[in-house]
Every structure is written in C-alpha cells, then in structure tokens.
C-alpha cells in the first residue's frame, strides 16, 4: 500500500493544520520518525522549525529547509518566528517545553494556546514525548490530533495515562506482529497510528546521522 492509499493521507491531503503526537520509549525512533514524516512529500511546501534545538546544530547538520527557533517569551512574538501556513513545527522532547510537572507555567499555557489555534495559523505541529504522563494533558485537547506510537517498554507503560494506555497496548502488539512478519525491516521503523488504525514505516532520511537522535547532547534545551 502506498501512502496515498492510506487513511492518514486522505485525512491530511486537504488539511492545512494538524497536531501529531509521537510517543514511545527513548531510542525507538521518534526523532527519526518525526523528521522523516515532516519530509514526506505531502508537506513539501513547508519549512521545518525545530523548537529550542541548538541553533548551530540545526544549521550545520540539517537541510536548508530546516531552522531552529527559540520558544518566544511572549506568544505575540510567535508570528515573527513561526510563519502561518508556511512552517511545519517540531517540538522534540516536549517535556522540556510542556511537561506535566510544569503545568500552569507560561510556556505550557502558551503552547496549549498555539496548539488550540493551530488551525487558525494553518500549522502542522509535531510533538514527541516518551510517555504522555510527562506531557501536559491539555496538549492532547488540541484540534485534529493524530497519535503516532513507537514501541513503549513495560515500565514506561506502567505510568502511561489511562486513556492512552489501551492505544499503546494495541500499538505494542501490532508493532511486534509487523516486525515479526517483516524481519527485513528494522523494528524501530514501525509506527502505529492509533487515530486511523494504520501501520507505517518511516525511512531514515539520507542526510540523517546518529548524533541527530541526540540533539541535546552536552547542552540543556531551552
């Protein structure tokens, strides 16, 4: 099956906005997956904004359509840094920006506002997080949320939010099944979309390097 034949594509082909939440245990391919997905042809007219990534790191390692932006101190400044209808925003390891322990902070409230008004700004926003219990629950109440699941280990599952747990259990089982049925495909490539109940693989971009999976190596985000 091609991407064009998928339910996910049919949902996105005429969409100008959406929020994608990628969850799963660390080092199971969330960062690769989110970048691979952002580079899918359906988003060809968008530039990719890595929020709070080290600026030099992005400039030196990523293709030209990428740039890094710091989360603004004032939500009013967002249009100066994130362009409506033009950008695909990636918030990698969102615990640093919208962590559940930081509920009520300015950044968290403002991110929630941005996600809520993503449709007005016609933005695609991807958020990666290891476990949704680490993510402020309000993020999941944004409009047009698509849930993408990587494999989650049992211990992490223990702390997963109740409403996500059933989805993740099914995702884990499905990923096991598909990985077993297709041994030639790397197990970390599998991603379950619990919004459309579909399985897909993400191919590593040609320009991807191992260090890109650890963008905050040696630095603290923010």
């Amino acid at each position: 099956m091609t991407f064009e034949e998928s339910k996910l594509y049919r949902r996105l082909m005429h969409a100008a906005h959406a929020v994608f939440i990628w969850i799963g245990t660390g080092q199971w391919g969330k960062t690769v997956g989110v970048n691979s997905f952002a580079n899918e042809g359906i988003f060809w007219d968008r530039d990719i904004v890595m929020v709070n990534y080290p600026y030099k790191f992005v400039r030196e390692n990523y293709p030209a359509r990428y740039r890094s932006e710091k989360w603004p101190k004032d939500l009013k400044d967002i249009p100066k840094q994130i362009r409506s209808s033009k950008d695909f925003v990636i918030i990698d390891d969102a615990v640093f920006l919208a962590g559940a322990r930081d509920h009520g902070t300015r950044e968290n409230k403002e991110l929630q506002k941005l996600l809520t008004i993503a449709s007005h700004h016609e933005l695609f926003i991807s958020v990666t997080i290891q476990n949704t219990s680490l993510l402020d629950f309000s993020v999941m109440q944004a409009q047009d949320v698509f849930m993408f699941h990587k494999k989650m280990d049992a211990l992490s599952m223990e702390f997963e939010r109740p409403m996500i747990k059933a989805r993740q259990v099914v995702a884990n089982i499905k990923i096991d099944q598909y990985a077993k049925a297709h041994p030639a495909i790397h197990p970390k490539a599998w991603t379950w979309c619990s919004t459309t109940n579909e399985m897909f693989t993400t191919k590593m971009p040609d320009w991807w390097m191992p260090r890109m999976s650890k963008p905050f190596y040696g630095v603290m985000p923010g």
């Binding site: 099956m1 991407f3 042809g41 991603t191 897909f200 040609d206």
Partner: peptide
C-alpha cells in the same frame, strides 16, 4: 502498511 519515504 505504507512507508513514509522522507524524500520531498
């Protein structure tokens, strides 16, 4: 399943 190609 389908593949996300990462090829713009």
């Amino acid at each position: 399943h389908f593949e996300i190609s990462a090829d713009p």
